[in-house]
Write a protein that binds this DNA or RNA. Structure first.
Lengths: 213, 213
DNA sequence: TATTTTACTGACCATCTGTTCAGTGTCAAG
DNA sequence: CTTGACACTGAACAGATGGTCAGTAAAATA
């Protein structure tokens, strides 16, 4: 890939990268025109839409500066995200803003964990050895995407009463099992018809793990 | 710092972060107004200029979407480090630049792994299950600090012949053991007086681990 | 109690922005 | 010579955008 671009298109793409990196926002049509001595906005527009068709740019319609990088290299895009590490499970649905339970921050790369953006990810420090056979040890930080449901086999963070646990989510018929990866612990059963029972709630899905030795 | 902001100002700052992360460009005055139910652009403008004065935002005059983060970004720029992920152990001492074995990049936070700088860290994708009891699974990426020696108990990356393995480093008298964390595998013994023997070499110490689910 | 600060409203303006349309010159292939 | 793709020009337009001004209601401060 990259061979399907004309020299000018490649230069324009580079300019958009540079401009965005330098200013924090993409250029307007007219800013591109000035840079490349194109006297009509439609000239720049022509190239941007070509680049859009080829998958190198995303163009938001009727949106000023609505031209952003897409695709393979993904280098100069700001992939980093400052993720809060929490000591215990957050109270509200996604309201992890409470600073009293914030242990610190880590910079993570959402792309590594298969997400385009890291906006609502949070880290949770694991206590206990209930998931030791899944390679999740006490002291590890799991990267959590908050969501109230999960797929069969997902590793999830669940809240029971006031405690948080990391478990594997299993669905068998209308029964939901939260299975620990440790034979010393018992799985938790939730009736799918009435998930509120037993005061168990899926907080989110574990999308990653980081550990410091 | 951070205490000099009103709750609303903090929320607006968070919104700008989230919007920019999601869309690739900052919001307009009116987009901020809509989000916070402010009916006048001057209401949003008022807050943005407060945030600008306090150094949290840079505001480009007469520029659409000309509002960008300051401060937290420069803070995170120091901590962030783009670490190469390698598919196999590098050949030379710290010569991991060879692009043919570079699998990709991740952005990591060296501080999380207890290092002030991440300049020479590299990632290594683990194959095999020799360290499964230490919570290191096949497919995990270990964060390696290249160095030829280690302390007793360190998890290290060692090269034997052409293969790389992750092992626990143990020193007993003048004997060095590289112990797998899997009873199915045998420990490797190195004579401390002559480490070159048996063609075994410590490549570096594992300082961290990252895993995508 | 009086004054200042905070956080806006509402109206309006000049300019900026993306979009559209009807053409134009260049160049290579048929 | 003709056709068609490419890379534009030039003009016009509706709506979006940042900026300005005068005023206000509530809260904090003196």
């Amino acid at each position: 890939m990259g061979q399907d671009l004309s020299p000018k298109q490649e230069r324009i793409l580079r300019y958009i990268d540079q401009f965005t990196e330098k200013n924090g926002f993409p250029p307007t049509l007219r800013e591109i025109c000035r840079r490349f001595r194109i006297s009509s906005t439609n000239g720049a527009r022509y190239h941007l839409h070509k680049l859009g068709e080829k998958g190198y740019l995303k163009i938001s319609r009727y949106t000023s500066r609505g031209v952003t990088r897409r695709g393979s290299e993904s280098h100069s895009a700001i992939a980093q995200f400052r993720m809060p590490i929490l000591g215990r499970v957050p109270a509200g649905p996604t309201d992890y803003a409470a600073p009293d339970i914030r242990e610190g921050d880590v910079i993570v790369d959402p792309e590594f964990f298969g997400r385009r953006s890291g906006v609502d990810l949070f880290g949770l420090r694991v206590k206990g050895d209930s998931m030791i056979e899944a390679g999740i040890h006490s002291g590890d930080v799991v990267v959590v995407h908050p969501q109230p449901d999960a797929h069969d086999g997902d590793v999830v963070v669940a809240r029971m009463e006031d405690e948080a646990t990391v478990k594997t989510y299993r669905r068998r018929g209308n029964q939901i099992y939260l299975e620990p990866a440790n034979p010393a612990y018992q799985p938790i059963v939730i009736n799918a018809d009435n998930p509120d029972r037993e005061n168990v709630e899926v907080v989110g899905v574990v999308v990653g793990l980081i550990r410091a030795f």
